[in-house]
Structure formats: C-alpha cells, structure tokens
C-alpha cells in the first residue's frame, strides 16, 4: 500500500489562498486505510474549508485514484461541480494527484505528502519493506530486503556501524544484515553470503517506470 499523510493545515492554507470554491477528491484505497484521504477525512476537510469561508462545490471518493481512466470518468460524471470550482483539492497519493491533473487543465492542489510503499504492522502503523528496485534479491536474503531495510542499501553484509544487532543510522531499528544473518543461520543455508553480489543494475527500472503486460 502507498503510505501518505496530510500536509499541515498551515501549508494547505497557504496553497488555498485566493481559491474560494473547491472540489475535493479522496481515494477509496490506500489514502482511506492511511486515514489521509478517505471518506471521513474528505468530510473533515470540507468542514475545515468552511471555517476558512471556502465553499465546496462537490466531492468524490475515487475507487483507486491511481487509475487514470477511472479518475477521468468520475470527473466527467461530476462535470458541473468540477467546473464550478476554482481548484481541485486532491487527498490521494502523488500518483493519485497526477491521475487527476492528467484529466483536467484546472488547478490541482495536492493535500497529502506521499511517503513510501508500506506494509501494515497494525492499524495506523506502517513499515517500508520494499523500495521497488526491479531486481529482487529476497530469495538470497532470507526474505529480508537489504536494499530497503539497510539504511545504506548495502548488498554484501553489514557496515562497521552495526552495534549489538542495531543499525548505526537508528539505534531503535535492527540492522538488516544482522536479521538476514540470523534467519539464514536458522534455515541452515549460506544464501547471499555464498557470493559477492555485483553492483545493482539501477537501469532495470527506467525513470519514469513503464510496464506493459505481454499478451
């Protein structure tokens, strides 16, 4: 899931200056689970906009704001409310915001900061486990990603900063290489320690990423 959080009200207030009529958009998937842009948050946003003396011309919770075509369809169905607004306030991840901006020439204001692809530990607590490198090494590292979980993304074992299994960059966090080592030992295999991992091919996922399922 894509983890996002709302921008501060102060920042939003600045962004909204001179925009009196807003169409508010949320997302039914990730932003709902993160409580950053679901139905409840969109409702709260409208209440807050009202306290600033701003009018909401309408709102919609898109079922997956990252779906470009679906976002376009939803905007078309609510054409009049969209047209009446000075700007569209989007409470979705950066991808969702761009689904909207690619479907309209109107001013689009993003209300969230997008953080990472996250796992859910428990409700309201998210952890980054994969940073989408395109060249997955998990099969050798006992299912623990060093690219993401090692603060330096090292591929050949721990740095000199490991201390009692904790990471130099954050003593609260386990050193990824210590975790990999312990789990491989339990599994009784050498895994990634059996070879020297070559430099990563960062060209595997060109920027911007594109992917088409082959028929």
């Amino acid at each position: 899931m894509i983890i996002s959080e709302q921008k501060s009200r102060e920042e939003l207030q600045e962004l909204l200056e001179g925009k009196d009529r807003l169409f508010v958009i949320g997302c039914a998937v990730c932003a709902t689970v993160c409580k950053s842009g679901g139905e409840e948050e969109v409702f709260r946003m409208q209440e807050w906009l009202a306290t600033l003396g701003k009018e909401t011309t309408g709102s919609v919770i898109i079922d997956e704001a990252c779906h470009i075509m679906r976002a376009g369809r939803d905007l078309r169905q609510l054409k009049q409310q969209v047209e009446e607004a000075d700007a569209l306030l989007v409470m979705a991840c950066g991808a969702g915001i761009q689904s909207i901006s690619s479907n309209t020439d109107k001013r689009v204001i993003g209300a969230l900061n997008t953080l990472f692809l996250g796992n859910i530990r428990r409700f309201g607590q998210y952890e980054e486990k994969c940073s989408l490198c395109g060249d997955c090494i998990l099969n050798e590292t006992a299912g623990i990603c060093p690219v993401t979980n090692c603060a330096k993304g090292l591929l050949n074992g721990p740095c000199g900063g490991m201390e009692e299994g904790k990471c130099e960059a954050d003593r609260e966090i386990d050193c990824a290489w210590h975790l990999i080592y312990e789990r491989l030992k339990k599994q009784n295999r050498k895994g990634v320690f059996a070879r020297t991992v070559p430099p990563k091919n960062w060209g595997k996922v060109p920027k911007p990423g594109r992917h088409k399922i082959k028929p």
Binding site: K152, L154, L155, N156, T196, P198, K200
Partner: peptide, 27 residues
C-alpha cells in the same frame, strides 16, 4: 562505505551508496 549522512552536518543530503565497499574494491 561511509558514515550515514543522518548524523553529519548535512542531514538533509541524499546519500548515494550506489556501490558498497566490496564492490568498490572490485572496481
């Protein structure tokens, strides 16, 4: 490898770590 940027005087810098120290040795 290099100390993490987090505790230096430019904590907002983007760290590179394109290679690790072993890959650099091979290079």
């Amino acid at each position: 490898s290099g100390d993490h940027a987090r505790f230096g005087d430019h904590p907002k810098a983007r760290s590179v770590f394109d290679l690790d120290s072993i890959q650099l040795m091979q290079t």
